[in-house]
Amino acid sequence: MSAFISLLKRDLLLAVRSRAEVLQPLFFLLVVVSLFPLGLGPGPALLARIAAGVIWIAALLASTLSLDGLFRADFDDGSLEQFLTSGHSLSLLVLAKIIAHWLTTGLPIVLFSPLLAVWLNLPREALPVLVKSLLLGTPVFSLIGAIGAALTVGLRQGGQLLALLIFPLLIPVLILATGAVSAATDNIGSSAYLLWMAAYAVLMLTLAPFACAASLRISLS
């Protein structure tokens, strides 16, 4: 447990040290979202209809952008070999890294989403559901993305392959999340969607660390 906490602290400290890398996905998100009104025309009705989808796809792209680096630095400087030989549970250490990744990329996206929702004229009653769906969905990005990152960490062009690997697995999250928001817009209950998302998040939280650890072993040998 002490190794888990020390690694979590170290990753957060490293994130504070390299602020530019941490802020990059967030700025990417803001830029992508602000491009849509320019491309599609700023009609309030149109924007309100596409707001949830745009925010979600932009969040997905922004998360993927930072995933490639999740294990790469540790792979390059030998930290991963240290984790593997340390005798600590690799799955637990991986979980610490995933949590640190979510805190530095997923959480800022959740916190900024109300601002984006206002930009895109999302109906006010749908806003809490959007934030909730992001709160349940962004951890899944980090968890599933970590499996892809672990598989591709040894490859030179890993980033592009990573996106191809994980996008199909993230489709359920996208469908459920946008479904939840449009249900809230239409004043139908959205809790069914959110509960399914929670179930998916719990499933990934249980399985992803083991899959990650196994993938890292393959990548290192």
């Binding site: 170290r10 390299s18 390059d76 400087d77 030998g78 930290s79 070999e81």
Partner: peptide, 16 residues
């Protein structure tokens, strides 16, 4: 027994 491994990659962080 645990294993202490020191390879060519040193496992230290440049920004710390």
């Amino acid at each position: 027994l645990p294993v202490a491994w020191l390879g060519h990659k040193l496992g230290i962080k440049d920004s710390l």
